[in-house]
Structure formats: C-alpha cells, structure tokens
C-alpha cells in the first residue's frame, strides 16, 4: 500500500523585487516522482535550498504542486474537500521547536490537534496520554513548554501530531536546531514510532548519521532526486557523496580509505561493529 505517491511534482514560484516586478521564476521542486509505502522509514537528505523542505510541505497540503500530482493515502492534495483528511493522515513536525507549540502546558499542546478534529473530551485525554508515553514525555505533561530543552520540545511536537492518529508523520529537519543529545532523543522517538506503532516516518534532514536506519534514502539536489536507495547502497558511493559535499559517517569514510589503500573490505560499512567484522577481528 502506498501512503504517499508523487508523480512529476514540480513547484515553481515567482520572485519579485521590492516594487513587485517579476525578477524570475525559481523551480524549488523539479519533476519529483516517488512512491512511499505504508510503514516505511524514509529519509530525504539534502543541503539547505535543495528543495527537500518544499517537497515536504506538499505532503501535508501546505503547498500544492504547480505541475504534477501528489497523493496522500490515495487522495489528491489538490482536492479541497479532502484537505482536512489529508492533514490528519499526514502529520507534520517542523524545524523550530518554539514556533509550533501552541499550548502553555505540555498536555494542552498535545490535545490541540484532537480538539481541532472535534474528538470527544474523554478520548482526547486517552490520546494525549498514550502519545506522550510513546515519546517518553509523559512525566512532563504538566510542565510549561518554555522550561523544556529543545529535544524535549520536539518530542512534544511529535506527540502532538501522534495524537491525531496519522498514518504518516513528516519530520521537516526536526533536529537542525538541537544539540547532540536532543538529536539522539528525537531520532530514537521517531524510530520507536515506526517500529512499535507502524507509523510511516519521513525524515527530512541534512545529517547523514540520522539516516542509517532508514529503509530508503532519497538524496535531493537543486529540486531533483539525485540518488535513491537503501542506506547501504547510498553509503557505498562515498566519492559521489563527498562530491555532493554531504557528511559521510566517519566509520564509512574510514572503511572507504582503508579499501582505497588496498585492504579487502566491502562497500557501505555503516557501524563500527560491521567494520570490526569485515576486518576479521
């Protein structure tokens, strides 16, 4: 079953100068086609300005393709009647943790989505409780979001989306503003949701090491998908990744260097355990 399907999705916008005259047209997403299966963990990787966030915003019907079509759970995002169903089945977590928390108490924020959907009070509480437990933030339910760390805030945001019972969660650079600890916690929470709750996860990021557990990776550059495959397939192409100035994990890089210097190692080593095994130790 495919949850998100894009066919030749193109997004163009007109740049204007201060007087409002047309300066030119920018193509942020250029003929992207992809098919994401229900229950997958997908990573979309790319630099700032590669079009990855623009593409993500299409999946939640915040933006609409200027050409091509995007379906969420079989529904065309251009179909206005389905707008709220689409936003409910494909939830979105954004980059800046401060700018997406609406509630002044953690639990109230998590309840915001279900409230909008018109869920009965009793069920809202059940959903809030289970969502906060799923991201390991239940003990903070009475706290003010302002007193939480960045990683904790992002996990609250994930819970807020989870409480809407989506089929798919799109995380748009959720870790870009976090410290290493916060980053680990957020990625761990996303992986757990995928493993336990079988929610489809689409992780948009520019950190390579966050993508090694994904089922599939799409690498974007200048609006197009330029590489696609499993992490092992992607990380086997070290020279190409370096050329695209993406961060290759140090283990992969080390294995690659050793291989270049004549050692007999396979391509695409992702963890230190794999390296040790490959070295025959």
């Amino acid at each position: 079953m495919s949850i998100i399907k894009a066919k030749d999705v193109t997004f163009e916008y007109i740049r204007r100068d201060e007087e409002g005259n047309v300066e030119g047209i920018t193509t942020a997403v250029d003929k992207v086609s992809l098919d994401i299966k229900q229950g997958d963990f997908i990573a979309i990787l790319g630099h700032n300005g590669s079009g990855k966030s623009t593409l993500a915003k299409h999946m939640n019907a915040i933006l609409y393709p200027t050409e091509g079509t995007l379906w969420v759970d079989g529904k065309d995002t251009k179909d206005e009647k389905e707008l709220w169903n689409i936003r409910q089945s494909a939830g979105m977590v954004f980059q800046n943790p401060d700018n997406q928390i609406i509630g002044q108490v953690v639990e109230e924020d998590v309840g915001f989505g279900p409230e909008n959907m018109g869920i009965p009070t009793k069920e809202i509480w059940e959903r809030v409780t289970e969502s906060l437990k799923a991201v390991d933030m239940y003990e903070y339910r009475k706290h003010s979001p302002n007193k939480l760390s960045g990683g904790q805030k992002q996990r609250v945001s994930i819970a807020g989306v989870l409480a809407m019972h989506p089929k798919c969660i799109i995380l748009d650079e959720p870790t870009a503003m976090l410290d290493p600890d916060g980053r680990k916690d957020v990625i761990r929470a996303a992986r757990a949701l995928n493993d336990v709750e079988k929610v489809t996860i689409i992780l948009i990021t520019h950190y390579m090491e966050e993508t090694i557990y994904a089922d599939r990776i799409f690498v974007m550059e200048e609006g197009s998908v330029v590489m696609e495959g499993t992490p092992r397939e992607i990380f086997s192409r070290v020279e190409e990744l370096k050329k695209r100035r993406l961060d290759v994990p140090q283990v992969t890089l080390l294995a690659h260097e050793l291989k270049k210097r004549g050692m007999d190692l396979p391509d695409g080593i992702l963890t230190k355990e794999e390296l040790i095994e490959a070295l025959g130790l």
Partner: peptide, 20 residues
C-alpha cells in the same frame, strides 16, 4: 556528561579491545 569524542576514537577503542 552528554558529550562524545569523535567517532574515530570509539572505533580505535573497539579495535584495541579486539586485540589490534
């Protein structure tokens, strides 16, 4: 204390443990 040395440090440590 929530910090980490570069990944290489850990690889080398693991290799040493395995007797290299």
């Amino acid at each position: 204390v929530g910090l980490a040395a570069p990944q290489v440090t850990y690889i080398m440590e693991a290799l040493r443990e395995k007797g290299l």
